[in-house]
């Protein structure tokens, strides 16, 4: 049996509906466990106090924000190469989830930054890159919304996703370079890898897995909706033609 069989909308709906309950429950449990563990059963950081605990929201959201775009890239490639409609619709379905994750990462970052750096926003390379990523999501979603013909929309957004990825990576390097130039240096930047102690890392991993499963469940759910919407549109068009 080939994996491409799941590119059949009916088969995809059938299988995704079977695994979705498990995904919802496991992601909910993992997120609850991770967040409660992280918020209430870890020590305060000696330097940052309890504010550090926002990391359990911030880091998984940021991780999923990037991975959602990556998933859209892969799905777009599959659509361009193999032309499976489900793939294009999955990319469409992932974008709003990705942009919300980006927003969560930005918002929690600002809330974290306020007590730590004394400012809600700094043009730190990392923050700036996420802002740029947010703009890319915005353009991608807007293009999907603007085009009437679903196949044309899928083709155009797929190419935008491919081109956008190249420019997003380029922007990341550009932003890194740009901020080294004249602005404040390392005192305000965060390197999570060095900061995170073992006590924090375990609940963090739980949260990350929880967020990942939640993302998967959301994408399955939304792809199912998109498939149904697409089918309704197709039936209406068919009806118009027969009338």
């Amino acid at each position: 049996m080939s994996i491409w069989e799941y590119a059949n909308p009916r088969k995809f709906l059938h299988s995704s509906e079977r695994v979705m309950p498990y995904l919802w429950v496991s992601s909910g449990v993992l997120m609850a466990v991770g967040l409660i563990w992280g918020f209430f059963f870890t020590p305060d950081d000696y330097r940052q106090g309890s504010t550090v605990k926002i990391i359990f929201l911030h880091v998984p959201a940021a991780l999923m924000a990037i991975n959602a775009w990556f998933m859209m890239l892969v799905a777009s490639l599959i659509w361009v190469i193999r032309r499976h409609h489900v793939s294009a619709l999955a990319a469409k379905a992932a974008a709003p989830v990705g942009i919300v994750m980006t927003l969560i990462a930005l918002a929690t970052g600002a809330i974290w930054g306020q007590p730590m750096w004394g400012t809600w926003w700094a043009w730190d390379p990392r923050l700036t890159s996420f802002l740029v990523l947010f703009l890319f999501y915005l353009g991608y979603i807007a293009l999907w919304e603007a085009i009437d013909n679903p196949d044309t929309a899928a083709d155009l957004t797929a190419i935008l996703c491919l081109v956008g990825t190249v420019f997003a990576v380029l922007s990341r390097y550009a932003v890194n370079f740009w901020n080294q130039g004249l602005h404040q240096g390392a005192s305000l930047s965060l390197d999570e890898k060095e900061n995170v102690a073992d006590a924090f890392s375990n609940p963090l991993y739980v949260c990350m897995v929880g967020f990942g499963l939640f993302f998967l469940a959301m994408v399955f759910y939304r792809t199912g909706t998109e498939i149904r919407a697409r089918r309704i549109k197709a039936l209406l068009a068919r009806q118009r033609q027969e009338a």
């Binding site: 353009g139 293009l143 997003a168 390097y173």
Partner: peptide, 17 residues
């Protein structure tokens, strides 16, 4: 308007450098 929304993020690296 959509054109501006799509093109601006692509302009970021050029503008920065």
């Amino acid at each position: 308007l959509l054109l501006s929304l799509l093109v601006m993020p692509l302009y970021v690296p050029t503008l920065i450098f």
